Simulated scan of single mutants.
Amino acid sequence: MFHERYSCHFCGRFVLEVEGWAESTQPYHQILAPWDDEATFFGGASYHLACLRSFDRHAEVRREFLAWITVTRDTISLMGTDGLQHESTRTGLGFTERVAVLASGEIYESPRFDRWVFVESAGPFHILDLERAETLGRGERLRGNDGVHSQLLPADPGKRIEKWDLPALLDFLQIRDLYQGLLDDYAPNYRFFEGGHSRAGYVADYSLSAYIPLPDDVTTFFAGYLRDYVPKRLEDA
């Protein structure tokens, strides 16, 4: 496995974050990583979703994602530096109700909020709020978040980065082949804001969104499910 910052955990190549295509996990998320001989947790890791899908142990990753996603709180056992097992309490995402088993994966619902998570059979997961679910229910494609990312680049691009389009940036990062499907069929929106040097290297601020490649059966599910769905009340949460 690969553990360098902004390197894909599964392939080792650079990860330019864009929701639904290349993402990272927060360091405080206590997702166990039994497939990794060098790390206990899959926290603070970056990965291309396609690389997870093709990883030969993706079933183990999916299992650990589900163990964290589908509980509110649970207890995990960890090996300490003393060579003994120690128990630790973990907070999960609380999607405790499975509402669909599809050919492409499973959908779980929060019992407190209007939120769902679709967990692909091949491992990646996608969190959906009511607005996103309604978008899918109307048969429309779902565009990922276009918020600003601050990302350390593997080399200094200089001032020229200000004029680059997305393909030029991907060529500089030597990862265009990994994002070619996004470029071809999923209408990416890319914008560079600013860049500068830090102690670690060159940091770029950018936004990048594209349509998320969700399977048709997820759209079909929400088209039917939301017809009779009653939104949860905040006072009942």
Score class of each variant (00 low, 15 high):
L173V: 01
D37N: 12
C11N: 08
P111C: 02
R13E: 15
Y190Q: 08
F113P: 01
Q26W: 03
L166C: 05
L178C: 14
L49A: 07
E131V: 13
R191H: 09
C8Y: 00
E131D: 15
Y211Q: 03
S121E: 15
F125S: 13
L130P: 00
A22D: 04
F2V: 04
W35G: 02
R227T: 14
I175S: 14
T81P: 00
K232M: 08
T70R: 15
D146P: 00
D171T: 14
Y229T: 01
H86G: 02
E38C: 03
V148N: 08
R90A: 01
D165P: 05
F14K: 04
K159L: 13
G181C: 10
K159H: 05
R57M: 04
S88R: 11
A50V: 02
L78V: 13
E162Y: 07
R90T: 00
E97P: 13
F193T: 11
F95V: 13
E64W: 04
L78F: 03
V18Q: 09
R53V: 00
V203K: 11
E97C: 07
H3Q: 08
D185W: 14
H126Y: 12
L234T: 07
P188L: 10
G20A: 07
Q30L: 07
W35E: 01
G80A: 05
L234M: 10
V71L: 08
I212M: 12
P157A: 04
A237E: 05
T72F: 07
S110T: 14
E162L: 15
T91Y: 03
D216N: 10
D184S: 10
D156M: 02
